[in-house]
């Protein structure tokens, strides 16, 4: 290398570039909570609020329109129960409070813990579907061969956009027994 190039100091650019690499690596991980927050604010991924909402006293029922809410259920992979809604769908006015029962039956001879996760489609309706009571707010312990009826009380916010006439609330019920008791080797390898 000639003298002329030996004099050039590369270290400041290299430092900046390495810092960019570190920042972008961190940014990749920062996107995880950012995405979560974004979804929470916009309902983008269809996940409804995890806490009970309180219907305001003076909430008006918008009788001028009716909305159909459909229910679908699925069990998580390998979860040993059947899980279904009592009714396939309800027709309701925004502002009206409805209760829908979900039925679960544990087919195992031992106690399990279940966690249901909701998802609303279209995603834009997520923010307007409010639950005052839901089995999905907490983990559901199921005794051996237990049959349970789990209620869900909800209403649609009267501010629901007019173009939404039909929406779907889906639940997946996962078996989280292993996660609670610590991830056991056998469970993770059995697939």
């Amino acid at each position: 290398m000639s003298e002329q190039h030996k004099q050039t100091d590369h270290s400041s650019i290299i430092t900046k570039l390495l810092a960019s690499v570190v920042i972008m690596f961190a940014f990749g991980f920062a996107l995880v909570p950012l995405y979560e927050k974004f979804c929470e604010l916009t309902g983008f991924n269809g996940r409804t609020d995890n806490t009970a909402s309180v219907a305001s006293e003076g909430m008006l029922i918008d009788t001028s329109r009716t909305v159909t809410v459909e229910f679908t259920t699925r069990t998580g992979r390998g979860a040993p129960w059947s899980f279904r809604p009592e009714v396939q769908s309800v027709t309701m006015h925004p502002g009206e409070i409805k209760v829908v029962n979900f039925l679960v039956e544990n087919h195992m001879n031992d106690a399990r813990v279940a966690q249901a996760l909701p998802s609303v489609s279209p995603g834009t309706a997520t923010l307007y579907l409010n639950k005052t009571e839901c089995f999905c707010f907490e983990q559901q312990p199921l005794a051996a061969n237990e049959k349970a009826v789990m209620p869900m009380r909800f209403y649609l916010d009267p501010d629901l956009p007019d173009d939404i006439r039909r929406l779907t609330l889906s639940y997946v019920m996962y078996d989280i027994t292993d996660q609670i008791q610590g991830r056991s080797q056998t469970a993770s390898r059995s697939e």
Partner: peptide
Amino acid sequence: IAVMPVLAGVVTMVLTDKFFG
């Protein structure tokens, strides 16, 4: 420089999801 570190992050997440719970 902008995106290869993000790929490194994603594969790391896949690794921990798969093997570290």
